[in-house]
Amino acid sequence: MSGREYVLFGGDTTCLEIRTADDEIVVVDAGSGIRRLGNRLMDEGRSRLTMLFTHSHWDHILGFPFFKPIYSPSTHIDLFGCPMGQGNVELLLSKTMAAPYFPVPYSALKARIEYKGVCGERLSVGRLRVTSIPLSHPNLGLGYRFEEDGRSFVFLTDNEPAHPHPGGRSAEEYAAFSRGADVLMHDAEYTEADYALTRGWGHSLYTDALDLALRADVGSFFLFHHNQNRSDAALKEMVADCRRLADAAGRPEMGVAAAAQDLEIEL
């Protein structure tokens, strides 16, 4: 999203950076936001990182060819995806650079990229523990829980618990997966009016996402994956409504906000 009505919440498609207590770098998804991240990592001289993917829809992979570290021979990337859910991750990424869609071929990459699978398995990056859960989304996908030193962050984008997509899980299972997290960032793309037309598209009613956060007893809930037509003013209204509903549910202490480009959360 761009334009005057999208200044607060508009911007790039999905790319998250997680820095651990030991200063390890984990990148989640390669939407258009990964371009600016790559520029910063190059400026910082960082050459070792871990990449995870939630799924392979365009808005989560289209930035990969513009990620400068992949053209540097000093870069080493441990790249994780779920072959059963997404197909071969290396093949999928290489297609983003295939002619006639991109002028530089995948074979031109100079980074050392090690492709590894993660399908319901636990993995560790230093002291950071990562667990995954299948998303309820067309063509599947993975949500993640990150835990380190007693702190936890759950990321469930492109998830529709109210509609059972093949391979997905129930709302109760997502609540259990998120239980007690310090931060839950969950897909909250639709209003009731939207959902009348988009049920089954793989995204959540914002009130369903809030309900999941309340049942999971999380510390803070962030609305994520904003609809491209949702203005700043409309998103503020959604956040205010979530705040009212959380207060009415007896959770006035739970943080509620909408995720925004360049948002930083310290745990």
Rank of each mutant, 00 (worst) to 15 (best):
D29V: 07
T131Y: 07
R129S: 09
G87S: 13
E90G: 03
L184W: 01
H57T: 06
S231P: 02
I61S: 04
Y101G: 12
L109Y: 00
A258L: 01
P105G: 08
S124M: 05
K236A: 04
E237Y: 03
H57E: 12
I18A: 08
T54V: 15
D262R: 04
D182S: 04
L93M: 15
L37I: 09
E264C: 10
E172K: 12
Q86L: 14
S132P: 01
N159A: 05
V125A: 10
R244F: 04
G219F: 14
R122D: 04
P83W: 12
L62R: 02
E173L: 13
R112P: 00
R215H: 12
F224E: 15
F102P: 10
P73T: 05
R40W: 10
A240V: 00
G10N: 00
A30H: 15
E173S: 13
Q228H: 05
G150C: 06
K68P: 09
T14L: 12
E189Q: 06
L263A: 09
R19C: 04
H163P: 10
W58R: 08
E5K: 00
A181I: 11
T20A: 01
R46T: 07
E237A: 14
I25H: 11
D208W: 13
S152W: 13
L79A: 13
G150M: 11
